[in-house]
Simulated assay, not measured.
Amino acid sequence: MTATALQIGPAGGALPDAQAWAVRLIDRRTGTCPRRNGSPLVMLTATPDATAAELLAGRDSALWETRAEPIGPARNDRGQA
Rank of each mutant, 00 (worst) to 15 (best):
D27L: 12
I8C: 11
R78K: 13
Q7N: 08
A22V: 10
T47Q: 14
T66V: 15
L44K: 08
L15V: 15
T66R: 08
D27P: 08
T32Y: 14
T45N: 01
A50Q: 10
S61I: 03
A5D: 09
V42W: 04
R35M: 09
A68I: 10
I71L: 15
A20T: 13
P16F: 12
D17W: 13
N76G: 11
T51L: 07
R36S: 03
G72A: 07
G12S: 05
D60W: 08
L55R: 06
R78Q: 12
R36M: 08
L56D: 04
C33M: 06
D60T: 02
P40H: 05
P48K: 03
P70T: 10
W21H: 08
D77G: 10
A11I: 05
L41R: 10
M1D: 10
S39K: 15
G9P: 11
P48M: 10
S61L: 08
I26P: 01
A18E: 15
L41N: 09
A3L: 07
T4P: 03
D77Y: 03
P16T: 11
G38C: 04
P73G: 04
E69G: 00
A20P: 00
T32V: 08
L15A: 10
Q19V: 14
L6K: 11
G13T: 14
T66N: 12
L6H: 13
Q7I: 12
E54S: 12
P48I: 08
A3E: 12
D49R: 12
Q7L: 08
A18L: 06
P70G: 11
T30L: 14
R29F: 06
T45H: 02
L15D: 14
D27F: 15
G79S: 08
G12Y: 11
R28T: 03
R29Q: 02
D77T: 12
R24I: 00
A14H: 06
L55T: 05
W64Q: 05
R28F: 05
L56G: 03
L6Y: 03
E69L: 10
T2C: 05
I26Y: 01
A68G: 14
